[in-house]
Design a protein around this nucleic acid. Structure first.
Lengths: 329, 329
DNA sequence: TTTTGATGTGGAATCGATTCCACATTGTAC
DNA sequence: GTACAATGTGGAATCGATTCCACATCAAAA
């Protein structure tokens, strides 16, 4: 791989001049410029990014920290991010925490060392140490999906989405509505969606039995188990189930079908996420579309803005959701 | 961000010595080592990757070129790759071609410039220019899913998988088996799977009518259209459908259901890919599991081996497949 | 006592770019 | 004809590490 010096020698000019052509800065005469261009063409020379980064402190790389790579949410998000970023000549450096909280911290450090121009963090739960680490990071950083005061966020409207789902059930005449959630340390999915559920119920004067609220851990299996618990332990069997993710809902459906329940006649059910399977379960699942790709795009745009203008004040964007009403209610 | 010089000054030693501690190479006395360590601790110093890369020509970054980010295949693949890579301290730099052939070439160049330590390329179709570009790349490179002579490959056994599916149909008594494929410029998915289909049919002395073979373009919609064509144009309506991807199969199912066909009674159907929806369509789809995650892992291992041993001879790995027989046949 | 080899440390070149400054040439206005 | 700005080019420092080589100690071997 050739270097700028070699190009300079071949074109009989100094490195400075080659550099000028490369970045078209400063004055270079037509003649010289063409001579240099020609040499560059012929040799297929491309400047080393590392040398450039070392000097300029810019890398054109954005670090993206994900809780898990192989989920629809993540891959849609990344698709959205990449869509905007690639347009602006940035590339994505992937960091997969595999739901390990420690790794979030580690990766932020690692990405700093690599001098990425910016970081997009999809956080699951936000603890004190993470916030500290975020605050002492001078690299532009966007957090998706969870609120962190000091930086820009792209947020889903978990609270209102949850209320909308419950509201739909109530409209359809349901009163005994049960809930499958996740741990509340996940503020967005665990806490806010639950709060939406509780508030909507309360506002309509509906009571919630303790056994109607169960927890899972994001996978289909635990949705099945949660549903089982609800059915087996409730004195009043509910007539509707609100699961905070589609996968949990699918698990619940599996259990209900196994026990001979008709959906939606015997039990209505809805999830959140608009995952692909939600269309193909039987009956098609009512869900909320969070438009992750749009979220990714929004985050990328925020980040680029922040990088290019070097502005500090954090912006908060709350995205729209769409309730997809299908046959499961 | 501190530099090695500052650390050296604070510890009253030379940069050389600090570097020695950092990489534990050469001789450093206990005293000095501890003194330096202490300063490093206190300042939270971490060496700049760029300066390091500039000097050592190593980046601990692997470029991964994907045809499309947000597909199950890709995300599983990446998950597998990351699994192995992160263990060895490598990170992934993502490059998404969005099915644009030109971009494959571009990205290979770009990744070179960024001096990645290796490249994993998931190619869709392999043309002359791509092979040329690959050959003149001195960076270790693995191609997944398509055969390229000069480099290491991780391959799916498309041909035999296709035969296995067709064989299953035949076993179940089907003779009129039709085929929904994709363009044959995609050697693996388009050509090999078709060849497997044809060969298996021929070997059993079964004839294939022209109209039984239709093409789609990887999405559900085109599966629907292909199925429609088969039904509408065939003089002999087939009794089984082999679609080369699950999505195509799902599209076909949608059409068949719409027209009142019972699956598998009136029409048996199978796909390839073991995508998540394949479990949740009704009836569950018979398909082939290619274990993409395993493929990703295999590719990553090959790549690391190639990087660390600096060996050249290309290796070919053909992965196992599993036929998942479900209610659709 | 001298040699030798292991141990310990620093100086300075190097990687491949960018960029500040100095200097040279040309054109234009007074 | 002089002054001054605009234009064009190169020298050399710089970014932050690694690494070759030289040099200094010191203990054990000859």
């Amino acid at each position: 791989m050739a270097t700028i010096k070699e190009i300079a020698d071949m074109a009989n000019v100094s490195r400075t001049t080659v550099s000028r052509v490369l970045n078209d800065s400063g004055y270079v005469s037509k003649d010289v410029r063409q001579r240099i261009m020609k040499v560059i063409e012929e040799t297929g020379y491309v400047p080393s990014e590392h040398a450039k980064s070392l000097r300029t402190k810019k890398t054109k790389v954005i670090g993206v920290i994900l809780p898990k790579i192989s989920t629809e949410t993540s891959s849609r998000l990344v698709a959205g991010i990449d869509d905007i970023l690639s347009e602006k000549g940035y590339q994505i450096l992937l960091a997969n925490t595999n739901l390990d909280q420690e790794k979030e911290l580690e990766f932020i450090k690692l990405l700093k060392v690599r001098q990425v121009d910016g970081i997009i963090l999809t956080a699951t739960n936000v603890n004190e140490r993470l916030v500290q680490q975020i605050n002492k990071t001078d690299i532009p950083l966007i957090v998706i999906g969870q609120e962190v005061d000091s930086v820009s966020n792209v947020l889903y409207d978990d609270y209102h989405a949850a209320r909308a789902v419950v509201s739909l059930f109530i409209q359809k005449g349901h009163e005994a509505i049960s809930f499958i959630g996740v741990d509340e340390s996940d503020v967005a999915v665990g806490h806010l969606r639950k709060k939406g559920y509780i508030d909507e119920m309360t506002q309509h004067g509906l009571t919630v039995e303790d056994t109607w609220i169960q927890k899972g851990i994001f996978d289909i299996e635990s949705g099945y188990e949660a549903m089982k618990k609800i059915i087996e332990t409730s004195t009043h069997t509910p007539t509707a189930i609100f699961a905070v993710t589609d996968r949990l809902a699918v698990g619940a459906i599996n259990y209900l079908k196994e026990k001979g329940y008709q959906i939606p006649e015997d039990m209505a059910i809805a999830g959140i996420g608009a995952s692909e399977i939600s269309q193909y379960v039987n009956p098609p699942l009512t869900t909320v579309d969070y438009q992750n790709e749009a979220a990714g795009k929004a985050a990328a745009k925020l980040l680029i803005e922040s990088i290019e203008t070097n502005k500090k004040e954090p912006k908060k964007i709350t995205l729209d959701y769409r309730l997809l009403v299908r046959d499961s209610v």
